[in-house]
Design a binder for these strands. Sequence first.
DNA 1: CGAATTTATGTACGGCCGTACACAATCACG
DNA 2: CGTGATTGTGTACGGCCGTACATAAATTCG
Lengths: 186, 186
Amino acid sequence: MAAKRGPADPGRRERIMAATQRLLLEEGIGGLSHRAVAREAGVPLGSTTYYFETLDDLLDGATRRLTEQYAHWLHEWGAGLGDPSPAELVEHLADLVETQLAGSRAELVLSFELMSAAMRRPELRPAAVLYAETEREVIAAHTDPHTARALVLVLDGILLQSLAARTPPSREEITAPLAALLTPEG
Amino acid sequence: MAAKRGPADPGRRERIMAATQRLLLEEGIGGLSHRAVAREAGVPLGSTTYYFETLDDLLDGATRRLTEQYAHWLHEWGAGLGDPSPAELVEHLADLVETQLAGSRAELVLSFELMSAAMRRPELRPAAVLYAETEREVIAAHTDPHTARALVLVLDGILLQSLAARTPPSREEITAPLAALLTPEG
DNA sequence: CGAATTTATGTACGGCCGTACACAATCACG
DNA sequence: CGTGATTGTGTACGGCCGTACATAAATTCG
């Protein structure tokens, strides 16, 4: 029963998954289709339905991988932070925002797309919630839990509005609300 | 086959618009189609394309109306607030969050859907940005501009995460980050 | 009353979609 | 080699889509 038979092309499945992630980042959830994935992966249409029976399997798998990759990246970012003062943490967080807005725009857009999609599709919730959860963990390593939660809310708000806006925020528009939480006296 | 006809049916256009708004709230942007609108409005398919040449016209019109309605409602909410102390403002804002989460869930979900859609479709930006803009104006009437901006970011973050989460936030989860900005000493 | 014009609609075209499924290719094993 | 079992694919079905457009009804005007 469990005997292994037939030709194994383990790279195939992986290539399809990777193509799905690429497609999601480029076109968003709405751009996902068996046909588009097959085109992007360079495999026949039948392959995508063979390895991933339904389109949701494809979406779930790709979003889980993408969010886990992001979580890993963010943890590493937090680990390289040392032991900053509140004022320094403000600057580090502002750097983070600017870095992401400049270099990870597609990932950010997808994360918010995922959040709003999760509001109508409960099966996407776990992946959507993982973003904020990870941010909270990483920041909580450098401040108290309450402040960490508030900081995450502010960060999400900044990113959300910056992505929807026509122009990127100034440095001061980023640091001011963060400083209001971390260095309220000055 | 058709019954009554005539150029004078001024309600027609309006009924289509209203049906579009209803459909958007119920099904989201992805659920919008000429056919679905026609069904919802009880008009023939040809009518929707006659009054609104393209689907985007329909979407733009409906989102503009919905956001303006929300802006109006929020201004009225702000006007009925009196002159609260910071501690009272925290409670009022928490009430606002709870009210919206309980009674305007569809509107909120759509607003975030609109934000994330605007990240890929610039023509939706004006409507998307109006939400935060209005919140800022209304709150700025009761505190300084910097704090108002930070409060809006926190509010958006709270709503975003609450809608994506499985369970609604506790009162304390709402008030704590607001109080961190408004009453940092206590 | 006709004729021109405006208003409204039914239908059809071409396209993309998810997915089922008959069928081909490949391999394990006797 | 043969013979299943397993893996992989091309194709086709039914459905929903946006939108163009011929045509019908109502109104307007000479």
